[in-house]
Design a protein around this nucleic acid. Sequence first.
DNA 1: AAAAAAT
Length: 547
Amino acid sequence: MASSSKPTSSEPEASSNLAKSFADRLSFPADKASSNGTDPKAPAFTPSKFNWADEVTTPVKESSENTGDTEARSEAAQPPQAQQPAQQAQPGHATGSSLEMAQQDGATTWLNGSQGLDEPEFDVNVKLADLQDDPNNPLYSVKSFEELNLRPELLQGLAVMNFHKPSKIQERALPLLLINPAKNLIGQSQSGTGKTAAFVLNMLSRVDLSTQQPQAIVLAPTRELAKQIAGVATLMGAFLEEAGLKVTEAVPNPAMRGQQYRGQIIVGTPGTTMDMIKRRQLDAKAVKVLTLDEADNMLDMQGMGDQCKRVKALLPQNVQTVLFSATFPPDVLRFANDFAPRANQLTLEVESLTVKGIKQMYLDCDTDEAKYNALVKFYGLMTIASSIIFVKRRDTAAEIERRMTAEGHRVASLTGALEGADRDQVFEKFRSGEAKVLITTNVLSRGIDVQTVTMVINYDIPETFNHGPDFETYLHRIGRTGRFGRTGAALSFVHDKRSWQNLMAICNHFQVEPTRLNTEDWDHVEKMLKQIMKNSRNAVPEVGMEG
DNA sequence: AAAAAAT
């Protein structure tokens, strides 16, 4: 299939401005991209030099013994990283002062893991469907990207993004994803550990660059996440651009009205993607990979579950189905197995899901109004780096923004009440650091990777539709910080019996004991939070993060 | 209650 015809040059644009801006920030000359002596139009992944099914001679090395490895997490490529790779700090250096301070707080446990020095081991449950059910088979864990027989351009892309070795989930997931013939995969790993890079590498390895017909579709629950993933794919595939790679977003966009969606990789939200396929603006007949990010969310909620199933029904039968999330509640895992039949599975026990680098705290507030006053009091701490404040309702977000702005504080808010273009604008300001405090709803609870976020505030405790504790949303929300081995602070406000009970149920569920903040001793609170932020800057991982 | 679609 390695057609020798030169792909047609990319046309106007369907591809994201965000993705483009990522690519523009790359500092390498374009002509070096494919000039490494390899055929720029290399065929899609073939097992020619390395056949996973045959290769059984590799020395066995159990992956759970790699203590020296600084857990590389990557979930989405971060523009600043690509922009200034030289700034990558040395990984895993806990300074004496930070440890000292942690001990003062009696919090050595959370600080340790966060530095990547002694990443706590967690048990990955490996379930192999069609393969020999031997999780210790060396085929099913790699220690380097080089072992994967990736296209050379992808190794270049990884290097530019400062992904030098696979993260834990990448070690396990990549060989299972890249095996031929392709198998379905259900993959679970903690927030900020590199899931995006894993499924993006799979797609980039499998698409045929000699045509820009869509061949891989990623569905994500929100506009912002879809755009972020498209940015990662564009960046990671930057060296394949000359060979014809094109990544296109399928999110609501008036400029695309009536236009054709081209590009080997389509990253979209379910409604728009389905709509575009039905309107024949997106030709799905050559799609061979379908990936659902935040898969439990995508399959659970009736609305999106329906849409995702309908999208899948419009694709070829034999599509490789890949599901990733940090959370897979047991009931949803059943749906997941229907959606991705005979999938290989990497899952985690619930007690392994919390990220140790995230310091979880709560604050007692007597009334709803007291929450607002507390929030204002925290403003100074929130702006040291960046912070996200989660509320339940859109109007609460707008109201807090209005009040705080009126009091002279700089805050922004992003909810689904905004139009697409406004959402893009607000989010870009937050990503760039121009806006440091963002008030939002669950729209941004999942997947968003802004590495400057050091504090997450649950202004409202996440609830399910019937006012019970929403375990998954809590975990995803606090996972907006503490990414890729950084530290972060998660602060939850409780103000009545229900919020208290829900928070306690959540903490019990994940077996964490949150620290009660005593604002009577504000000096101590300030000192502790400042330390977390300082550590967050210091702890920069080296392993494959995607974003 | 939020999100997701140009329905």
